[in-house]
Nucleic acid binder design. Structure first.
Length: 270
DNA sequence: ACAGTAACCTGTTTGC
DNA sequence: TGCAAACAGGTTACTG
């Protein structure tokens, strides 16, 4: 569910309240997530100070002096800042309790995860093979072009491949391809270097704008203060099947690629 | 090495 | 109204 802008929005929503705070208690009500929460997580985390909160791909990294908590929201995960005494609801699986405030992890589908590493996070098995961050200069039209040369998969599945570039999920993949004027079905190795420059720029501008607007709220994403994101008002194609294209008024088409919905304008994208 | 599929879960929407 | 099927923003393991 949450793609990079939603994860980054979540990070920005909790950072001021939690950086420099010490974990008083870790409450685990359900340890069976995408991967089981390590049994010793409370022992590792309690009495540790959160020195900083970073992000790699869609993982949030809570850095302490002895290790790092890796937290992924999966499809339906959500983090909120709450009063520590607030009663837990059905899918409230974990609380990190600080002084006067707690961070609550809620995840109905349980595709999220909480993992601990006491070595360099970037060496962790879940992070070590990830591709470049889309908003950094290590990702650009040339890196995308290079990665595409030996792939004949549809371009949409290539930009959603975390080995190529991280953070681009189902919504923003369709949106970026629309902005770049590229059909989602086109084989990756049949796109010019110049068009890859445009696609890399489209990915960056789409993600930047979505972060600026607090992410996209379709069903269940909310910022940590409970407000929805507002980027859904900017969507050109996603979830707009049969509606008129914002550029040419032709109806937006919906297809399935790799078991995921794709939306595009057959008139504007080639 | 890559492409395609199934799998992990639950809640909501759609269709008969 | 009731029930079953389809579908949902992510990622990995497995097969061919």
């Amino acid at each position: 569910m949450p793609e990079l802008p939603e994860v980054e929005t979540t990070r920005r929503g909790i950072i001021d309240a939690l950086e420099g705070q010490t974990v008083q208690r870790v409450i685990i009500r359900q340890h069976r997530l995408r991967w089981p929460i390590p049994n010793d997580l409370p022992q590792q985390l309690e009495q540790q100070c959160i020195r900083s909160i970073g992000r790699r791909s869609k993982y949030l990294l809570f850095h302490t002096d002895t290790g790092t908590l890796l937290l992924h929201l999966g499809m339906s995960g959500r983090l909120r800042l709450i009063e520590p005494s607030l009663p837990a609801d059905k899918h409230d699986h974990v609380d990190l309790v600080f002084t006067n405030i707690a961070l609550r992890f809620t995840d109905p589908r349980r595709f999220g995860s909480l993992l601990w590493t006491d070595t360099q996070p970037e060496k962790h098995v879940r992070l070590k093979d990830l591709g470049p961050e889309p908003l950094e200069t290590t990702f650009n039209g040339d890196t995308l072009f290079d990665a595409a040369q030996h792939r004949k998969s549809p371009i949409k599945t290539v930009i959603m491949n975390a080995n190529v570039v991280v953070g681009v999920g189902n919504i923003y993949a369709s949106e970026a391809l629309f902005r770049a004027g590229i059909a989602p079905t086109r084989s990756a190795n049949r796109i010019s270097r110049q068009r890859y420059q445009r696609l890399a720029d489209a990915i960056k501008s789409t993600l930047h704008q979505a972060i600026r607007m607090g992410g996209t709220t379709l069903n269940d994403f909310y910022q940590t203060d409970g407000k929805p994101g507002y980027f859904q008002q900017q969507l050109n194609v996603y979830d707009r099947a049969q509606e008129p294209c914002t550029q040419c008024s032709q109806p937006i088409r919906k297809i399935t690629q790799a078991q995921r919905s794709t939306f595009y304008c057959p008139h504007c994208q080639h």
